[in-house]
Amino acid sequence: MQGTLNEELALSLKGRDFLMLVDFKPEEVRYLIDLAIDLKQKQKAGEPHQLLKNKTLGMIFEKSSTRTRVSFEVGIYQLGGQGLFLSGSDLQIGRGEPIWDTAQVLSRYLDGIMIRTFEHRKVVELARGATIPVINGLTDLSHPCQALADYQTVLEHKGRLEGLKIAYIGDGNNVVHSLMMGAAKLGMHMSVATPEGYEPDANIVQQTKDNASETGASLHICRDPKEAIADADIVYTDVWASMGQEAEQKEREIAFSAYQINEDLAKYAKKDYLFMHCLPAHRGEEVSEGVIDGAHSIIFDQAENRLHAQKAIMAAIMS
């Protein structure tokens, strides 16, 4: 019966875009996580898993990257395909070509497109114009690849996801948006603490709460970091000023000064809590060195799992 269910889930994912986790059913999100773990085990064991032999992934970058570029390029290679790096400044899209036209042309050459950009509308327009799967490698609104890898990492360390509490302390940005959506799909409880004016997007908060009712998950938004982190299984943060917000750095340092995850704040979490950060990190700002480099930190397991989670996404939608 399980095999039949997995076959149905595999068929349901073929040819689809991967833009936001809210677009997927709870069982589909869990299938992708399980597939990521399976592909990781195969890679560690040296077992061939060339599920995308001779397939080509176009990778459009309008934002610089370390983890996204390397993990996608290595990932498609390990799956038997090849990745083509496409700088936004080198494409005609950077000179005013309509996104629809670019999408149509690239669909004639490639088997899939990954794009890392600023405005979320670009990803949506690209997916509408393309006849091949499009993957959101990051936008200002959403970072679903990161969240999928994060929950894979939690599952590997905790042995379960349902019923766990994740506390996010910091800016209500693209990372927390995807974490919220993922938590709702996976039956997890999430608390978010942000300063006034830096809350998560209201529409995504509502979508998260609507989805949470289906899985028994919950979402709590507050101002007090101690309230959010109380009895948390996972403690998560991100930089206070994301890419493109550098001009706001000083202003944000003041606004977020009481939101640093340090040893004193971490005492309110469970004794066996996991600390997570999507990287790059600014030690001494959003997190103390003692926490990020301490025994509870699993940040480099997260970073590694970007490779495996993204391989699962590519294998599921491009095969």
Rank of each mutant, 00 (worst) to 15 (best):
S12M: 07
F18P: 00
L21Q: 05
K25M: 13
K25G: 09
P26H: 12
E27G: 09
I37R: 13
D38A: 15
K40L: 10
K40Q: 13
K42P: 00
K42N: 09
K42M: 12
A45H: 12
E47S: 12
H49C: 13
R67E: 07
R69E: 11
E73Q: 14
Y77C: 13
G81E: 06
D90E: 15
D90V: 10
Q92P: 04
Q92F: 09
G94M: 05
R95M: 10
G96C: 06
E97K: 05
P98Q: 13
I99K: 02
I99R: 02
W100T: 14
D101Y: 08
A103E: 05
L106K: 00
L110P: 00
G112I: 05
M114W: 03
E119Q: 12
R121Q: 13
L126C: 04
A130N: 01
T131R: 11
I132K: 01
I132W: 00
G137A: 11
L138V: 10
L138T: 01
L141W: 06
A147H: 05
V154H: 07
E162V: 13
I166N: 01
I169K: 02
I169E: 02
G170Q: 01
N173Q: 09
N174M: 04
V176F: 02
H189T: 07
V192Q: 00
T194K: 00
Y198R: 10
E199P: 00
T208S: 09
T215K: 12
T215Y: 12
G216C: 09
L219Y: 10
I221P: 01
C222Q: 07
E227T: 12
I229G: 01
D238Q: 08
V239E: 03
A241V: 09
G244Q: 10
K250M: 14
R252K: 14
Y259I: 04
Y259G: 00
I261V: 15
L265E: 03
K267L: 13
K267E: 14
K267C: 12
Y273P: 05
H277S: 04
C278V: 08
P280Q: 11
R283Y: 08
V287Y: 00
G294K: 09
S297E: 10
I299V: 15
N305Y: 09
N305L: 11
Q310F: 07
I313L: 06
M314W: 03
M314L: 14
A316N: 03
M318R: 03
